[in-house]
Amino acid sequence: MDCQGIFEAISEYIDQELAQAKCRELERHLRTCHNCRVVIDTLRRTVALYHSIPCERLPDEARLRLHKVIKLTNAE
């Protein structure tokens, strides 16, 4: 597998969804290719960063407005 092939397979690799044979091929390539290692490590870090964003909590006033709208709609 060359750099071209690696680029298309990175996401499946970091999600552990890449077929075993391709995975071994990719890891063999990574031992000798600095740039592909960098792209994989920084892509993995990117995904981890987004995953760690705290959930945006619904403000209390918005919650009250939502429940009011639902009550009114249901009463129609």
């Binding site: 750099c3 071209q4 290692r37 960098v38 920084t42 870090r45």
Partner: peptide, 16 residues
């Protein structure tokens, strides 16, 4: 862009 940079032999910085 990163794929092309790799092809052009640019060494990518690792910020992970």
């Amino acid at each position: 862009a990163v794929k092309e940079a790799t092809h052009a032999g640019v060494v990518l910085p690792d910020w992970s």
